[in-house]
Design a protein around this nucleic acid. Sequence first.
RNA 1: CGGGCCGUGGCGCAGCUUGGUAGCGCACCUGCUUUGGGAGCAGGGGGCCGCCGGUUCGAAUCCGGCCGGCCCGACCA
Length: 578
Amino acid sequence: MTSLYAPTLKEVPAEAEVVSHRLLLRAGMVRRTAAGIYSFLPLGWRSLHKIEQIVREEMDMIGSQEVMLPIVQPAELWIESGRWEDYGPELARLTDRAGREFCLGPTHEEIITALVRDEVRSYRDLPLSLYQINMKFRDEVRPRFGLLRGREFVMKDAYSFHADQASLQEHYDAMSRAYGRICERLGLDYRPVEAESGQIGGKVTTEFMALAENGEAALVYCDGCDYAANVDAASTIVSRTPAVTEPMPMEKVATPGIGTIAELSDFLAISPHDTVKTLAGVVERDGARTLVFFCVPGDRELNPVKACWAVPGVELLDEAGFAEFAIPKGSLGPVGVKPGTLVVADRSLEGDVSWGVGANEDGFHLVHAMPGRDFEVGEWADLVVAMPGDLCPTCGGVLKGARGIEVSQVFQLGTKYSVSMGASFTAEDGIEAPFLMGCYGVGVSRSLAAVIEQHADDAGMAWPVTVAPLEVAVLPLMAEGEVAEVGERIWRELADAGVEVVIDDRDERAGVKFADADLIGWPYQVIVGKRGLAEGVIELKDRASGIRTSVPLADAVERVAALVAGAKSALAARTAHP
RNA sequence: CGGGCCGUGGCGCAGCUUGGUAGCGCACCUGCUUUGGGAGCAGGGGGCCGCCGGUUCGAAUCCGGCCGGCCCGACCA
């Protein structure tokens, strides 16, 4: 370890906020090169490799074949798929000396589709599953949290090609199980959750969330059944207890200067829960731009994804939109809307007979408005962002909330890319058909950070043995004499026994060695000191539990090797989630 | 991209209000002592004060512009 390049820091660099970022920097595993761009030092690189290797093994196990695709990709392919336009500024573009346009691959659907369409002509060659592990680049709006959201990051991405839905589903399920096993082997506490498909496209998708306080994603889950979902996608049953249950005459009240639900509920001295918030959107209908009003309980957020499910193609209005339709932003409501306006309301409001809503006139609101009497609702739909306390759509249990780090995701893409890029094969019946595709991503460098988020304490990291840069560290507490000699002998014998072991042979005080060992988080530490040797023992420390046990010198190597082997197989054998 | 904060030896910071010759802790180098939880003493090296311009006899400090970073929001492996 005298020659190991692992510059540890006592003090936390000011740039780091979250646990994993601080510890990766402090333990000398990574260094920042630019915003969202990191260099991996030897220890960080080793752990990253460990994760890659686990992913590789699981991919190979389900018959996916490893390839290596270019990071620099020609624009033509992206123009074909339509994403040269759609991807926006997140796609880093560059021009070569001849003026040809390229981009840095943020993902590889285009490349893989182009690769396969030219080679695979028959259903006999299907299914086909390919994967790679390499750098992605996305010019993120806001890189942050160290490796959790970089611009450059290591990803395993797999793509599969199928002749029929059954085959796609089968591989999708195999991938999902493999992803579960990967999480298990990484020692992650995780949940597969229903998700929204975002940029990549497609419909069926599951995200694998490592549960963590610092997670950027909010999710809800049910203890009563397996249901778990990203709040972006979660269907939800909102239970409501309206304050007014009998129809009352509608009344117009002056609400000068009131433009938000918070102000309104203060002004009327009622709970936000008893108001109804109206948001406006616009959609193309029969060639005209049609106004859409979404009504949700005042204490809930409209989920734009669900708005889109209810009214395909709808976009929420921006400032220009409000001007275009000449409607008062702070006083919208479903009563007396302009002709042609579509009113969509959240299902949870369906039984309410007394709505407090905007009057569509600046400075006025209506109370006790009643659907069916004072206005019409065109459609009832699930519109709100799910929250803990809502009811489970599967079993009716009460949903709980958690935060998570999205470490991986599986998608069924269908024919989105194969159609746009003309990738087809000849089916059994002789007819040309587009491939059905799936794509499957694991954030490898993000997983590294996620593992740390879940396995750290005040002293540093406490790696699961499968991800630790090395499995065992030998700490001779003196740099010379018998202590050093015994330490070196144990180190050699452990290495010969196939254990990944490092020796801290620096001429440092015991305290420095202990502190660095706990910071870096070697899972097992063999402490060789004068005190122990006098009794013929070494100490064996388990980093995660902090427990130290004395082991007779003669048994040391065997004990440690057995411990490491046992810990590894325990993680491998943890039962995967369904 | 909006809002907030910040750029001073490798790291963490003070100095800036009220311009006057750059300082502290850690780290680093040398020597002695020390040696089971980030040692002590003595000596030493290292700074375009983010960059450009302006004000001034004089700018880390005041003014303007730019660049970079972090945090909070809208997007995502």
